[in-house]
Design a protein around this nucleic acid. Structure first.
Lengths: 360, 360
DNA sequence: TCGATCGGAACAATCGATTTATCATTTGTA
DNA sequence: TACAAATGATAAATCGATTGTTCCGATCGA
């Protein structure tokens, strides 16, 4: 990458001044015209000439110079828990689309990697490398730093409401916006689906018990059950994290209880997210539980993989695409008005598949 | 993000000149010392003082200014086919680690999104937003533009050898480096595993027939079969793309042939990648084929999901982490010496799981 | 003792785009 | 007719870090 030696010849950079000279005008004027600046007072033909020359020469502005002068990088950082999770794909797409509409680019990051590398964290957050940050909430250890992060760069937390963990350490505390979907409605929809299929005892395998996300999801289930005159039994609940491994362990724990107690068992489980659902399906097979004959399973979040599992997984989809777009909009709207945005539209949608069936 | 109004107060930026003034030296000297520049002739105590002040004030260099002067952004673009594919995770991690070791950051991109947005493509490639590009090869339509891309920014293609599609359109053609793992050894390993289990008729569901990646993978299978005195029958081959849907369709096509021909069928299939493997498992279940009793399946690439499928999927892992690190190294080594790097170390590793079993 | 050398550090130029202030030239109006 | 206002465009300053050059004083060899 030294550009020296007998290597290939790269096209020399075309500068704004090159365009200006070729068009017979000054650089500032060219700048105004090319940026469609309101105060670009120039004769129509001059404008046309500048645009034509820029096009012909293949002029592309030097981002570094522009950033320096405008103290604006044109980049938004999007930091999620785990880049490999199919769950965030729609969020990323939504955010990318909205960002692109405002001439912004997205830089993707992974919370664990960011926390593991202090240097990277510092540069990312304090180095003015991004104009704003969209952060997936609900990560202990990261939520605690949200205050510090937000003090350095405008920040929006997605997929989680404000949590007690988010301390605005010290004075000059900065509050951040939160953008998240209507979680209770989603799990309510799943629960009602299972109730419709005749299930009366329904369990839950979820992420961290005290995470705001879990609380909201659990609430949706409880509400639906209560309305049906039923309840959520403590022994039918398992918590862990949001991974497939955790779902697998969750089912094992439940199965063990079922062996011990001889007190009946739930005939359907709600999975806190798709990864947990995948773990449950895998563990159920190993435990000799047939899905859906012996156990129905329904999970939060719809991803491409849901249709390719054996059996295919019943899910509810949340408007993550819109969460992404709304987060970018909120970020660009300025930090003056931190607020919570709950996306109730579009509504969560149920995707019934083979993992849930009528109770025999 | 306007920073105006009654919004929260953000920490004012600490400039190099602030550090210099506080330390009682000039900015250039502070710059040299902080960057550990060889020609930084400064008294030991002066150095210490500068470092201490920088630390105390929380100085972080302004990337825009640095980029402008040094014409170096500190960013490397990594562009893969599909960000949601678990296959690229290790590649990303490897590239990130190596990049970080050289003070570089990674900007992730998605080929389809990049191709869909001309503006984004242009800025990404021609806007000097990144110092180098690592591109996942084997994408028709993108391979054709590699020549143009490489002419604008140093580029390394990963996971695919040079293909005929890569035309260096026009004069001043630029050749790029290719970094990829030992594909034939991987599929050979899978095939030998299946042979060991007693299978004598083995099929293949792969990606695009003429893609270099498929050719290499197919070759590994053919070699292993030939050594065992067997061959790959044309009717046991299906091609498509690298998606789960394609794997699903692939199995359907094969199953149809088996119905028609009454001429026997393969008892084991090699899947061109994990996504195809997932599709095969799903479709097999729907076709009433039990895996592994009726059909063994083994796939290229080992991902977290392999262990969570039903049944768990036998795979072979390629050193994608090392492909990532090697790609970054090749990029940073300079464009003077484009070359093909075939990573034969570490060797592909077989991960036998439940989807493959001894022929009954 | 004089010039050469070297350590220690500052000065000035530079990267490329944007923004503010400024200067001409018209056009419109009292 | 003369002066204000609008139009069209430029000169100069700026963003913050880096790099090449220069400067000063002290030490050293001849």
């Amino acid at each position: 990458m030294d550009g020296s030696g007998s290597g290939p010849v790269r096209r020399a950079a075309v500068r704004l001044s090159d365009v200006a000279r070729e068009a017979g005008v000054s650089a500032p004027l060219a700048s105004r015209v090319l940026n469609g600046h309101a105060s670009a007072r120039a004769a129509a033909e001059t404008k046309a000439r500048i645009l034509e020359v820029a096009e012909r020469l293949g002029y592309v502005p030097n981002v570094a110079a522009r950033s320096l002068r405008a103290s604006r990088t044109g980049l938004i950082g999007l930091v999620v828990h785990d880049l490999s999770s199919p769950i965030y794909l729609e969020l990323m797409r939504g955010a990318r689309a909205e960002a692109a509409a405002h001439q912004y680019f997205l830089v993707l990051g992974d919370i664990d990697e960011l926390l593991a590398d202090d240097e990277a964290f510092n540069i990312f957050v304090n180095g003015r490398r991004v104009d704003g940050l969209i952060v997936q909430g609900g990560h202990q250890g990261f939520d605690q730093r949200i205050g510090d992060i937000a003090r350095a760069v405008p920040t929006v937390v997605v997929n989680a409401p404000a949590s007690p963990d988010e301390t605005g350490a010290g004075s000059g505390s900065v509050t951040v916006s939160h953008v998240y979907p209507d979680e209770p409605s989603a799990t309510r929809l799943l629960t009602e689906h299972l109730l419709d299929l005749g299930h009366t005892r329904i369990g839950l395998v979820s992420g961290p018990r005290d995470s705001m996300t879990n609380r909201l999801r659990e609430k949706g289930i409880r509400d639906a059950l209560e309305e049906a005159g039923l309840g959520l039994r403590p022994e039918d609940l398992v918590f862990g994290d949001w991974s497939a491994d955790s779902g697998r362990r969750g089912l094992r724990v439940l199965a063990e209880r079922w062996h011990d107690e001889h007190a009946g068992r739930p005939t359907a489980l709600v999975a806190g997210n798709t990864l947990i659902g995948i773990g449950i399906l895998g563990a159920a097979a190993e435990e000799g539980l047939r899905v859906p004959q012996d156990l129905s399973v329904a999970a939060v979040h719809d991803t491409w993989i849901s249709e390719h599992l054996v059996p295919t997984l019943t899910t509810v989809s949340l408007p993550l695409h819109e969460v992404g777009t709304a987060a970018v909009r909120q970020l660009l709207a300025g930090s003056g008005s931190p607020r919570d945005v709950v996306l109730t539209e579009p509504r969560p949608v149920l995707h019934p598949r083979s993992s849930s069936a009528r109770l025999q």
